[in-house]
């Protein structure tokens, strides 16, 4: 849907974000400022099938420490369509699933990325397992809402994944778009399955 008062909203929201940006800067002055918030744009996670047919295809694997897509076993999380898996636990049982070699896990926290400063309790971390996703799939369950009327996938604001990496480090991340170049208002024709996410990688500690 195209919005008629779009520009007005842009203006209002820009003003608003100016203020929130300021306050974020203040928050960051608390000792972990050496950690960098990175944005990884347009991680392409295609899938085959769909449209009622069985889904398949290679997962796109990502490593936080390398800030890059990887093809070896050093991955922490991997993407295919709206499905996200972690490098830890056992096979879920879906087609073309990569072998898990690490000890990764994820804890899902409702908060802003900046406000997550500590590692959540160990009991809140989940791994993939037979017929179980560490990051639940489906609209409203995990990281996104799907609008059946507009066919738009929207990452839920304030869903932060604290990821235990394959080698036991931590990263916190928030997915901010599922569309190429993260348009503010994606349309049904926007190119899809392009993840943009913000994250902070903590190579040696348990605070962000």
């Amino acid at each position: 849907m195209i919005k008629s008062n779009f520009f007005k909203s842009v203006l209002i929201l820009s003003v608003f974000s100016f203020f929130t940006s300021c306050s974020n800067d203040d928050d960051n002055a608390s000792g972990t400022a050496n950690l960098e918030t990175k944005t990884f744009s347009n991680l392409y996670a295609p899938q085959t099938g769909g449209m009622g047919a069985p889904v398949g295809g290679e997962f796109t694997k990502f490593s936080f420490s390398q800030n890059a897509i990887v093809t070896n076993d050093s991955w922490d999380i991997a993407f295919r369509g709206t499905t996200i898996i972690v490098n830890g636990g056992t096979a879920i049982g879906i087609t073309d699933e990569p072998t898990r070699t690490g000890n990764g896990a994820v804890s899902i926290v409702s908060n802003t990325l900046d406000a997550v400063t500590t590692i959540p309790n160990a009991s809140t971390f989940n791994q993939d397992g037979a017929s179980t996703y560490a990051i639940p799939t489906g609209s409203g369950n995990g990281w996104y809402n799907y609008d059946g009327a507009t066919n738009i996938v929207t990452p839920i604001a304030g869903k932060v994944f604290v990821v235990k990496t394959h080698d036991g480090k931590y990263a916190k991340m928030e997915i901010i778009s599922y569309y190429k170049d993260a348009p503010a208002n994606p349309e049904a024709t926007s190119l899809t399955r392009y993840f943009t996410f913000k994250y902070v990688y903590q190579p040696n500690g348990t605070n962000f």
């Binding site: 929201l13 604001a157 304030g158």
Partner: peptide, 16 residues
């Protein structure tokens, strides 16, 4: 309970 956030469509930053 503080569980709902919004994402600024321009900065793509979430806030409570």
């Amino acid at each position: 309970r503080g569980e709902i956030f919004a994402r600024d469509p321009i900065t793509l930053t979430s806030f409570r």
